[in-house]
Design a binder for these strands. Structure first.
Lengths: 192, 192, 192, 192
DNA sequence: GATGAATGAGACTTCATTCAT
DNA sequence: GATGAATGAAGTCTCATTCAT
C-alpha cells in the first residue's frame, strides 16, 4: 500500500466515522473524540486532515454529494429522449437513496439544518446541471411542464427523500414493482 | 393579567425563543443560556417549565405540529369531493409552509434529524388522519392512484417542504399564480 | 389544635424530613426542595422556621442530641452504685441506638463529618455530665480504671455506634442475650 | 521523570487534594473546581483519571483503606501468640490512626455516611481477614470472649476512631504511656 | 403565616482543540 | 505523520434563597 493511499485511508476512515455518528446520533452527540475512536485514530490526528469540525462536516458533505451526483448520471447521455433520460436518472437516484441509506440520510439531514455552511451547500448543487439541461430541453419540446426547476425537482426527485426516511424507519419498503409505479407519479407530476 | 396567563407567557416565550434559535443556528448552537436570554428569563427558569433540553425540543415539536395540523384542515369537510377536499388541504398546507416559515422550517429540521425522540415524532403523526381518509375514498372512487399513502404524501405534500426551503434561502418565491400551477403538479402526481 | 401546636407541627415535620433525607442520601443529596416536599410545605416556608440550611441541620442535631441524652439517663439516680448506675445508662443508650435507628444514625453522621458547626457540636456534649460524674466517683472508689473520660467513653459507649451501623446494614443483630454479654465487654474495658 | 510516573503523579495529586478538602469541608463544599486547583490541574483533567466525582471518592476510599490495612498487619505473623498478635495489630492501627490523621479521618467520614457506594465499602472490608483469623484462634484457645467478631471489633478497634476524632479536635492527646494503658482497656474488653 | 415562581451563583461535566513528544 | 495528555471555554442543570402575592 502506497504512502498516499495510507493517508487517504485515515481521511476516509474519519469521513466514514463521521457519517455513521452524525446519522445515528445527530451533529450534536457526534463529538470529535468519538469520531476519532470509531475511525481508529487519535483525536489530534483529525486535525492533520481537517481544519476543524466544521471543515470535517463540510468536506464530508461535498464528498457524499459528489458520490451521489456521479451515481445519478451513470449511463446517462444527452442523446436519450427526454422521458428516457429522466427515467434513467430517476431510477439511478432512487436506487442510490434506497441502497446507500447512510449517505442519503446524511444529505437529508444537511439539507434541512444549518449544519453545513451555506457557501458549501451552494457548491454541492452544481452537480445537477445535466438534469436541469434535460428539463430545459423537455420544456422546449413541450414534454415537461413549463415550471421552475425548483418545482420540477420538488415534485419528482425530492419525494424520494421522504420514501428513504420511511424506509429507514422501517415503516415502508419499496420493491421493484412499487418503484415502477412510483416513477409514474413522478413523471405525471412534471410531464405535460 | 391573571396568574395562569403569566405562566403560559413564559412558557410561550421560551418555546418561541427556542424556535428562533434552533432555526437560525441549529440544535447545537442553541444553548440554554441563549434561549433564556432571548426569552427574557433566567436560565434556571427554563427548568420550571421543561424537564431538560430534550423535553423543551419535544414539546416545541408537538406544539408546532399541532398548530400545523389544525391549520391544514381549516374549513375542511368530509362532504367535499375528493379533488376539492384535496385542493383545500393542499393550499392550506402550502400557505402554512410559505407564511409560517419559522414553524415549517423547524418541522423540516426535526423530521430529518435525530433531534426529536422517535416516540414523540410518532405522536406528532396522528393528526393527518383526515387526509388519509380522503385518499382512501379517492382510491375507491378511482380518482386517486392506488398507491401507498406514503407515496401519495411524498409526491403531493412533501414537495412543499423543498419549496419552503428554497424560499427561505431566497432563491425562489411562489406567488399565487405559480402556486396554482404547482398544485396541478401535485394533483397530476397522485390522480389517475 | 392550638396555633402554637400547628407551628410546632411544621417545624417538627421539617426536622423529621431532614432527618430522613440526610440519613438515606447524605447531606449532599438532601436539597431544601426535597425536604420541603417530604415535609409537605413550600420551600419558602422553611425559612420561617430556620435561618438557612446550616441552621436547620444544627437545630436538628441539637434536638436529636437532647432526645438522646434524656433517654440515656431515664431512671438514673446518683444514689445507685457505680456499676448499677453504669449498667442502667449503658442499656438505656444501647436501646436508644438499636431502636431509634434513624436518630442514632444521624448523630453518627454528624459526629464524623464537618456537617455540623463545631460550636454546635460542643453544645451537644454538655448533656453527658451525669455519666462523667459517675465515672469520677468510680475512679475514687477504685472501681473504674483511672483513664481519661474520653478513653472510657471510647471503649464503653462509642462501640455501640458501630453495632448500630452493622445492624442498620443488616449484617448483624443484637438480641437481649447478646446485649447482656456485650455489656460485659464494656464493663471489663473500663472497670478495674 | 518517566511518563508513567507523571500519570501517577497527577492521579495522586488529585486523590490527595480530595482527601484534604473532604476532610476539611465535607463532601459538599469540596467542589471539583477546588479539587482541581489544589491539585494544580485544570478541572477537565480530573476526568482523565476518574469517571466522575463519585468514582473519585470511591477510588480514594479504596486507596486509603488499602494503605490502612497494609499498615495494620505490618510485622504480623500467624505464629505469634494471640495476645502478642493482637497487641501488634492494635498498636499498628493506633499509630496509623494517630499519625495518618487525614487518612483515618476520611475513613471515619466515609464509614458513617452514604458518601461511598455500598458496593465499594464492602470491597474495602476484605482486608481485615488476618485479624478475624486471630480472633478465631483466640476463641478456640479460650483467651478471647466467645462473641461475634463485630462486637470484638466494636470494643477493641473501633474506639480508636473516637480517640482520633478527639485528638483531631485538639481536646485530647494520647502519648505513649496513655496508649499502653488504653491498650489494656481494649484487651480487657475482649479477653476472658 | 404561607406560598411558589423566580433567580444568581455555582455545581458537575463535555468538548473542540493544542502541543510536547 | 501520529499521538494522547491536557486544557479553557462553555454546556446543561441544581440549589439555597428571596419576594411579590
Amino acid at each position: 500500500m502506497s504512502k498516499k493511499e495510507k493517508i487517504t485511508d485515515k481521511r476516509a476512515a474519519l469521513l466514514n466515522a463521521t457519517l455513521t455518528l452524525v446519522n445515528n446520533h445527530g451533529f450534536h452527540n457526534a463529538p470529535m473524540s468519538k469520531i476519532a475512536i470509531l475511525a481508529g485514530v487519535a483525536p489530534a490526528t483529525i486535525y492533520l486532515y481537517f481544519e476543524n469540525k466544521q471543515d470535517l462536516i463540510n468536506q464530508l458533505y461535498l464528498e457524499v454529494k459528489k458520490s451521489f451526483s456521479s451515481c445519478a448520471f451513470q449511463g446517462y447521455s444527452g442523446e436519450l429522449s427526454v422521458k428516457d433520460g429522466f427515467e434513467l436518472i430517476w431510477f439511478n437516484i432512487a436506487n442510490y437513496k434506497l441502497n446507500q441509506i447512510k449517505e442519503a440520510n446524511f444529505l437529508s439531514q444537511c439539507d434541512n439544518s444549518p449544519m453545513v455552511e451555506e457557501e458549501i451547500r451552494v457548491e454541492g448543487l452544481r452537480h445537477l446541471q445535466p438534469l436541469l439541461d434535460l428539463w430545459e430541453r423537455g420544456k422546449k419540446e413541450e414534454v415537461i411542464k413549463p415550471l421552475s426547476d425548483y418545482v420540477l425537482y420538488a415534485f419528482s426527485i425530492y419525494p424520494l427523500s421522504f420514501l428513504l426516511e420511511m424506509q429507514e424507519r422501517q415503516t415502508f419498503t419499496l420493491n421493484e414493482e412499487l418503484k415502477a409505479q412510483t416513477f409514474l407519479a413522478a413523471w405525471d407530476a412534471i410531464s405535460l
